[in-house]
């Protein structure tokens, strides 16, 4: 799968260290994932400069236009003014993508940021202190992970119909901490027993110093992988809620667009561009974060890299 070569047991390490193109961070999956997510971010940042985003409003455009390259039967001919077509309420799909994508990303980043922060704190605390603190945190974590969080979020947001993006992110953060905590705790636990951390402890460094100066740098790939996992988890939860019609209704997020298309039976009417583009965009985002996480995993565990195809 990867082009990275296997490290034979007897290869001297010095030689490969000197080669600067051999940095573990130049992992092909990691880079590809970064590019995919980067594209989505750029679309939201630069898109509004080139495209009129007010076209994302209801009735701003003609109805049911197919994308310019498609000529499906029973639909009006495509219009170059709406390259990705329009849906049944007169929204321009390109404008929907440009306004919807950054909102989905933002929800994910805020929720994952909070989740990771809590995760780092609790995970380090549990892994490093041990004892009853560890027992409480671990038990709570395991219980929260088992609860189908999406369902709880459905209950909450069906009561509270009007949420904005920040509130949504806060709700998602309610569950986004458990997995990072688990991962970080396990890592902290194993690192605690490693030589360099022990040395730091013996030389009288404070717990805080040890945690942040000695362990953090080595945990970086794990933290980054947790973060990218948490972001896509939060985006998935947000999109799922939106697709059920729960979530910010005024702004057309990607999930909301899917919800409208399902409600309008777009699948069975053959209007694939209505649901297809938001799904394509989300698939790009999810695949991007997934590849980032896998790439980071390989960076942290060289053994996964050394698998040749033969």
């Amino acid at each position: 799968m990867t082009a990275t070569t296997a490290n034979a047991p007897a290869t001297p390490k010095k030689a490969s260290r000197l080669n600067r193109f051999d940095s573990p961070w130049l992992n092909s999956k990691f880079i590809a994932g970064l590019c995919m997510v980067g594209f989505a971010v750029l679309l939201g940042l630069i898109g509004p400069l080139f495209w009129d985003v007010t076209l994302a409003r209801v009735a701003s455009s003609p109805l049911n236009l197919p994308p310019i390259w498609a000529h499906p039967e029973g639909f009006p001919p495509p219009d170059p003014a709406h390259p990705l077509g329009t849906e049944s309420s007169g929204r321009d799909m390109l404008a929907v993508l440009i306004t919807g994508t950054p909102r989905s990303l933002m929800v994910g980043f805020i929720a994952a940021g909070i989740g990771l922060l809590v995760g780092i704190t609790l995970g380090f605390l549990a892994g490093f202190k041990g004892g009853w603190i560890d027992a409480v945190i671990r038990t709570l974590c395991d219980a929260v992970i088992v609860i189908p969080s999406l369902l709880v979020l459905i209950v909450i947001s069906s009561y509270v119909r009007q949420v904005d993006i920040v509130q949504m992110a806060l709700l998602l953060a309610l569950f986004a901490w458990a997995f990072p905590t688990r991962v970080i705790r396990a890592q902290a636990l194993s690192m605690r027993e490693r030589g360099y951390v022990r040395m730091a402890r013996l030389s009288g460094a404070s717990t805080f110093t040890i945690m942040y100066r000695e362990m953090m740098p080595n945990m970086l790939p794990y933290l980054a992988a947790s973060f990218s996992g948490a972001v896509s988890g939060a985006i998935l939860a947000a999109t799922s809620l939106e697709a059920l019609g729960l979530g910010p209704t005024r702004i057309p997020t990607l999930g909301m667009t899917i919800f409208y298309s399902i409600r309008a039976a777009a699948i069975l009417r053959g209007m694939w561009w209505w649901w297809g583009f938001p799904i394509l965009m989300l698939m790009l985002i999810f695949t991007g974060f997934f590849m980032i996480a896998t790439g980071l995993d390989e960076i942290a565990n060289p053994r996964l890299r050394g698998l040749k195809a033969g």
Partner: peptide
């Protein structure tokens, strides 16, 4: 021999 990117290691 062990085949490595840097040549065969003659074990």
């Amino acid at each position: 021999h062990y085949e490595t990117p840097g040549g065969a290691v003659i074990a």
